[in-house]
Design a protein around this nucleic acid. Structure first.
Lengths: 224, 224
DNA sequence: ATCCGAGATCTTGTATACAGTCTCCTAAAG
DNA sequence: CTTTAGGAGACTGTATACAAGATCTCGGAT
């Protein structure tokens, strides 16, 4: 019953709907495997089926939704094994992003990245844990922008959202957060050290994986 | 006026339309920057606007199409610089795919990959250059399947299609083709040598980049 | 009791209709 | 001659309607 038409934004409904359904999936309000019936979703969001259908196609391309022709769409399932697969991809992609960012950095780069970090720090201290995940994502996207590879960024945006989903699903909200890791990466980029930047990005993702494994298999000590 | 409803396939129109528009873009029949007017496309393909719209959203997510709200969709532009950016991403992704494939390989893996290679070889010898690109892509996807990382594969499919687009746009159909490189990669995977597999995949993409640079900047010798 | 099938219901697939917005052309004013 | 207001046309955004297929239910046969 959330009426998206309120709020006066003049973004096309399909974009608002896409963002909202994705949010519902990431937050878990739409559970894994849950059926996405176009009628119901449309009614729930206060729109017609058409924007909903377009959204579902996009979310399917992003991997949040599984569509079976003439049967319907469901929220994708995310087994622990599939969830862990994401970390390998992130290490490759974010490692590359960090390397390119270090290569392409300008004098203003450090300040730009640190600004995002500061916002995140404030959000953490202010207890706005809701915003922390988004600002965390924003930092990684900012690194991508510095890297200046458009296709890389096209891939990164959905990938980072998927990372949020993985963490929400495993209830593994990292405690001390990754602020120091981010700062360390920021410094390597600012210094223009490609190898170091990539290494720190990879280490950052590896730390996230350990945190994930600790949540999923608390019995076994992560052996990375 | 190509009527997609002919051919009797019972795939949803949106999927056929997506594949067809993507094909038109990759082949250059739809030029960079060309306006994609929903009405005209729908009429040209013999369908209504609805499947066309859903296709456009997906193609936008894949980076083939640029959508500006309330203005319209155009075929994305691919500057030489943007085209070259793809190779960095490919080296990261395909390198990872090769590494994971070497890790996860089974005794049947080599035969499976070689089968695809043989098909490609036949297509080359038979002059079916049309099919070569598709079989080339099929090989890389097969490596991805062996790697067994579902999200990686989700990214790889559009990425490989984009690679086809880049080559078509630069008219850089590689001469001796990459058969020997593929075979070499295949062997490393079959041997389970992760480092070697990744290295060969990266080298393969690097060779493709050199071929690309030679076509785009024939004056300058590619400096890797 | 279990399995099968016809009908009803639900859901997706596709098309059409209408409303809102942008573009472009024209024409009049400066 | 340039600029700008206005309006027609073109196109996108969204909703509704209808057709086709899938699922479910319930009664009947084995």
């Amino acid at each position: 019953m959330t009426d998206l038409t309120l709020g006066g934004a003049h973004l096309p409904l399909r974009d608002q709907v896409t963002a909202e359904i994705r949010r519902l999936i990431i937050s878990g309000e739409l559970a894994q495997g849950e059926r996405l019936v176009e009628d119901r979703l449309a009614a729930r969001l206060g729109v017609s089926r058409n924007p909903v259908r377009e959204s579902i196609r996009v979310l399917a391309a992003e991997g949040f939704v599984l569509v079976i022709p003439r049967i319907g769409a469901t929220v994708a399932r995310l087994s622990p094994a599939e969830a862990e697969e994401l970390f390998d991809v992130r290490m490759a992609i974010e490692g590359l992003a960090a390397r390119l960012a270090a290569r392409k950095r300008t004098p203003e780069t450090a300040a730009r990245l640190r600004m995002v970090l500061d916002s995140a720090k404030e959000a953490v201290e202010g207890g706005r844990l809701e915003r922390v995940a988004d600002l965390n994502t924003a930092f990684h996207l900012a690194v991508g922008e510095v890297a200046g590879n458009s296709y890389l960024n096209l891939m990164m945006a959905p990938m980072l959202l998927r990372a949020q989903w993985v963490f929400r699903q495993t209830a593994a909200a990292r405690g001390p957060h990754s602020w120091s890791e981010h700062l360390s990466l920021c410094e390597a980029i600012a210094a223009g050290d490609e190898d170091e930047a990539q290494a720190r990005a990879v280490a950052h993702v590896a730390a996230a994986r350990r945190s994930f494994l600790a949540a999923v298999r608390p019995d076994k000590f992560p052996n990375d």
